[in-house]
């Protein structure tokens, strides 16, 4: 079962949640817990720049990121991550209300490995994490 494979096949993850809404960050943090994703650390950033600063200090295994954020949006963050050797290989899953084909393609071209459309069911987040991490 998916839940068992996640727990058996996956090391404990350091996950970074990037969203300008504190409410959405709390929601995603809770969903990670209830859906059985094993986490070592769950870090939070309110925009792309905060996320880059955090990743510079402490490497993470996975980034879950919004697109529309003040100061630095998700696209710019992806661009900077691709240009930074220590961040280039960190998988990013975009979590956005924008489910248009153009946006999904653009984010993928910029390096995002996964995409979840808001609103989403808790299971959808876990499935996408499993798919992206290959567990």
């Amino acid at each position: 079962m998916a839940n068992e494979s996640m727990e058996a096949g996956c090391r404990e993850l350091s996950v970074l949640i990037v969203d300008d809404s504190p409410l959405m960050r709390s929601f995603i943090r809770r969903i990670l817990t209830v859906s059985g994703v094993r986490t070592k650390d769950v870090l939070e950033a309110g925009d792309g720049q905060d996320a880059l600063d955090l990743m510079d200090k402490s490497p993470v295994d996975l980034v879950l990121s919004d697109i529309n954020m003040p100061r630095m949006n998700g696209s710019e963050m992806l661009k900077r991550m691709s240009a930074t050797p220590s961040m280039r290989t960190i998988p990013v899953i975009v979590v956005s209300t924008d489910a248009t084909r153009q946006r999904m393609d653009t984010m993928q071209q910029m390096g995002a490995q996964g995409y979840i459309r808001k609103p989403f069911q808790p299971e959808a987040l876990r499935c996408e994490i499993e798919r992206v991490l290959g567990v």
Binding site: S21, T97, D98, A99, T100, R117, K118, P119
Partner: peptide
């Protein structure tokens, strides 16, 4: 944010 984004999508 979510409702507006869903309708526009």
């Amino acid at each position: 944010n979510i409702v507006c984004g869903s309708v526009l999508s």
